[in-house]
Amino acid sequence: MTKTVKDRQFRPVAVPDVELGGFWGKWQDAVCRSTAETLLDRCVEAGMIKAIDVSQPSPGIVIPIQPWGGTTQMFWDSDLGKSIETIAYSLYRRPNPELETRADRIIDMYEKLQDQDGYLNAWFQRVQPDRRWTNLRDHHELYCAGHLIEAAVAYYQATGKRKLLDIMCRFTDYMIT
């Protein structure tokens, strides 16, 4: 029987089907034990949760003073997306109901933040709505969307919960129409 090109396509191994030990396993254990929670804590300390919480006033332009330098927080969504993705991958290895609940609360906030038409970007919804889609190179709307999409897929795969995936599907539908 002759193999077709389709038979030779790359198919990644599913995360739950991979078990790491040794050096990399210890690193994964560290992420599960403390890094995922620390990353989320840093997002909280930087005011990112307040930024997406529509029950609070808009934080305006925030320039946090951090040891690594201050930046305007146009990246709220990408940083929270990276944090949720990290939580998702850590949940594969070690269940953590408290951390999962914290991620669920953030996802609930994103659901409330999302516009009726599907648009979702905390910076442009809460700080500079008049600048949406005005500078795709520098304003990071697509970059932030990409990180939230990656988080949505990982979180769905890890938990079976569709809420963030559905939110990001609505945003994707908005972007392509």
Rank of each mutant, 00 (worst) to 15 (best):
A152I: 06
E100W: 00
K50N: 12
G69I: 10
K163I: 08
V62G: 01
R132F: 04
G60Q: 10
P95E: 09
V15F: 15
I167A: 01
S58H: 03
V62T: 12
Q9I: 13
P57Y: 07
G70D: 06
I106H: 01
E45R: 15
V15W: 11
G22T: 06
A36I: 03
P97Y: 06
R93V: 08
K161I: 07
M1L: 13
G25A: 11
R131Y: 03
C43K: 04
P59T: 12
M48C: 06
S83W: 00
V18C: 12
V54Q: 05
S90Q: 03
T35W: 07
G70H: 10
I63F: 09
G81M: 01
R33N: 11
T86H: 04
L136S: 10
Y155K: 05
A46H: 08
L80H: 04
L91C: 04
G25I: 09
W123K: 00
R126N: 02
G21P: 00
E111P: 03
I49Q: 03
L142C: 12
L165C: 09
D29A: 12
Q114V: 06
L80R: 02
W133D: 07
E19Y: 10
A145E: 01
V18N: 11
V153Y: 06
T71K: 15
D117F: 01
T72C: 06
Q128K: 12
W68Q: 08
P97E: 13
D17L: 09
G25R: 10
R132Q: 13
R131V: 01
Y92W: 14
T101S: 14
M175G: 04
R102A: 05
D53K: 06
L120R: 00
Q28T: 08
R8M: 14
M48Y: 13
G22N: 06
Y143C: 02
W133F: 14
D115S: 10
N96G: 02
G81K: 03
Q28A: 02
G25P: 01
S83R: 00
R162I: 09
L91I: 02
F124Y: 13
K26Q: 14
E85M: 07
W68C: 02
D17C: 10
Y110G: 01
G69K: 03
Y174F: 15
Q116K: 15
K161E: 11
Q128Y: 04
L39K: 08
Q56M: 15
N121D: 15
